[in-house]
Amino acid sequence: MTTLSNRRGWGFWLQLGFTLLVCALMTVPVVMSMLAGLTANYFVGLKSGLTLRWVEEVWRVYAGTILLSLQVAVACLACTLALGVPTAYALARRPGRFARLAEELLMMPVAIPGLATALALIVTYGGIGDLRSSWLFILIGHVLFTLPFMVRAVLAVMASTDLKTLEEGAASLGAGFLRRFLTIVLPNCRSGILAGSLMVLTLSVGEFNLTWLLHTPLTKTLPVGLADAYASLRIEIGSAYTLLFFLMIVPGLILLQALARRGRPDA
C-alpha cells in the first residue's frame, strides 16, 4: 500500500474531501437534531445545558406510539416473511410471462403514492367491522407496501443460485418437498431473507405516507406522532423524539447487518 500512497495525487485528496463533505452534509443535521433533543433551551443553545427532560417528556406522552410502531414492524416482518418467501420461491421456480406479470403487479404499491393506496384501503375495507379502528388496519397497509421489497430481495438471491439443480440433487437423495425447502432452499437464500427483513423493518418503522391516513387517534405510530410533535410542540421535544427513534432502530439494523455478514459463506 505504501507504493500506492506515494502516488496519491490531488485527485485522491479531492475525492476524499468531496466524500467527507457529503458525509458531513448528511450526518450534521442528524447530530444537530439529536443534540437539540438534549438541550435545555434550543434557542439559547448548548450553553443552556444538557438535559434528559425532553426525552422523559416524549416517553411520557408518546411511549404508546413507539411500542405500537415496534409491534406493527415485527408483525409486518412476520407477515412479509410468511407471504414473501414462498412468493419469491414460486416466482423463481416458474419463470415465464405470468411470473413476470405477477412480479410487476407486486411492485405496484411502491409505484403508487402511499396516500392513494391508503385511501383505496379505507374505501374498500374501512367498513369491515372494527378494522378501521384496529392497529391491524395499519399492519395491512404496511404489509402491502413492504412485501415487494421482501420478494425482490429474496428473489434476487434465488435467481443467482441454481436452486433448481440444488433441489434436484436433494430430491435424488430422497428428500421430499418440505425437507428440501427447509434444508436447502431457505439456508441458501438466507442472505436475501436477511436483507429483505432489514428493509421491511426499517420501512415499516419509518412509514408515514400510508400510516398518516390509516391511523386513528388511538393507533398512532412513531412517525405520525413525530409529525404531531414537530407541528404542535417545542422543537426540543420533536428532536428528543427523533433521538428515541434512532435508539430504537440503530441496534436492530446493526444486529441484522451482523447476521447477514455471518450468513455469507466466505466469512
Binding site: 439443480t165 440444488l166 440433487g169 435424488s172
Partner: peptide
C-alpha cells in the same frame, strides 16, 4: 425421483453450499 433410490451426479455438481 425422491422415491426411486437413484444416485445422481450433475454437470454443475449441485453440492449444497450451506
Amino acid at each position: 425421483i425422491e422415491r426411486r433410490n437413484v444416485g445422481m451426479v450433475f454437470q454443475s455438481y449441485a453440492l449444497f453450499p450451506n
